[in-house]
Design a protein around this nucleic acid. Structure first.
Lengths: 212, 212
DNA sequence: CCACGTTTAGAACAGTTGTTTGAAACTTAC
DNA sequence: GTAAGTTTCAAACAACTGTTCTAAACGTGG
């Protein structure tokens, strides 16, 4: 046996993550997964119970640590006497950046999976996950209120909505203009390059004065 | 016969558009489509040739007019002696807004379809469509260069990338924070409300001074 | 060596998929 | 009214879907 070969469960998770990103939940069959993972077809149902449960496992494996990393960043930030908008934005970007640059955690794969799952509106997102991480949103809400005291709750919610949207899609590599042209508008997919341009963009939009 | 009932082709297109948005390309079967459209199963292959060709037809029906509307807005803008960033942004937002508010064109359905198709990376987007609307990107590139002369080509490309990303996802109703909480962060999906907050957000980010 | 719980194996299940077929029904024009 | 062309219909096709089953193989402690 190849000792470097991970166990069946991990191999299934790794292959699934990639295939779910590439072909979506419906477009990925258990036979594709088990073949590429080099395991028996029945292994998925044996180890995870069902295709749905497998998807949830793939998702939770990465989401929980990512959330934790963000919350830890927020903890540090809250102890600071002078929190900045830039620091707050980085408290979300930094964990995404770390994840994107770590091949052992699938790199940017998971952000892409979140992006796909979001637009696919998968059950797991509506039913299982959505409510158990609401602390994430609450904490960011409070943090944004602190660094942007001049905004109404409504205005703040919109700017957060837009900011997470653009940050998310940047890391997921969703190039909208790709719809209209073959040539990639943005040259590289280097995560550091993304952050370099993303951070000032988001901060500029967030700190703009409220229009009365 | 009910004279208000559209013909088979249109009924298939309308139903397909909605189902492709709700369940994606792979998740939508021809039997779902034909049943809801009240037509025979073979009708899709008779009128369109294949499921792939149907998808392309659904996509092109809305995309071409949307592109045209944007290009027309750009024409007007270019004749203006004092084009503004706000005007340029609105030249994209306005056609999206009109579309979103027009139920006879499926409302916001098509923007959501574009959003789904983008992350699904469908063949039709890679092969068929991508190259024939490159004029869209070229025109916007030139227009942005005119109203933001202080930016390098690189910086401009990134800001355009982010801006179209956030505008797109706003109209598509992709609420990222929905992943983490059940409660909708942004209250309404009223297109006018979206524009009201979206426009100043994007403009602020676009006009921010370049950091040398 | 044996017995035990865990994992893997291949085969089969009923149901669904996109597509094709040939005949029926319909519309249109002469 | 009849012929030609267009559209609809039910039925069938092979291929694929997630899931289940039982037997075989495996690892482990006695």
């Amino acid at each position: 046996m190849d000792s470097t070969k991970p166990d069946t469960t991990s191999r299934i998770l790794d292959v699934s993550e990639r295939l779910f990103v590439e072909h979506g939940f419906e477009g990925t069959s258990l036979r594709m997964i088990t073949q590429q993972a080099g395991v028996n077809l029945a292994a998925v149902n044996y180890h995870f119970g069902s295709k749905d449960a497998l998807f949830e496992a793939v998702f939770l494996r990465r989401l929980a640590p990512l959330i934790t990393a963000c919350l830890t960043e927020l903890d540090v930030l809250e102890k600071s006497s002078t929190p900045t908008v830039e620091g707050l934005v980085m408290s979300f970007i930094r964990p995404c950046l770390m994840l994107s640059k770590d091949p052992s955690r699938g790199g940017a794969m998971f952000v892409r999976l979140m992006s796909r799952t979001l637009v696919e509106n998968h059950r797991v997102l509506r039913d299982t996950l959505s409510q158990q991480y609401s602390v994430f949103v609450d904490r960011y809400n409070a943090a944004f209120e602190r660094v942007l005291p001049g905004l109404s709750a409504d205005e703040r919610a919109w700017r957060m909505h837009f900011s997470f949207s653009v940050m998310f899609n940047a890391f997921a590599g969703n190039d909208v203009l790709k719809i209209f042209t073959r040539s990639q508008v943005v040259s590289a997919r280097d995560p550091d390059m993304i952050v370099k341009h993303l951070l000032p963009y988001v901060v500029s939009a967030l700190v703009a004065p409220a229009r009365g």
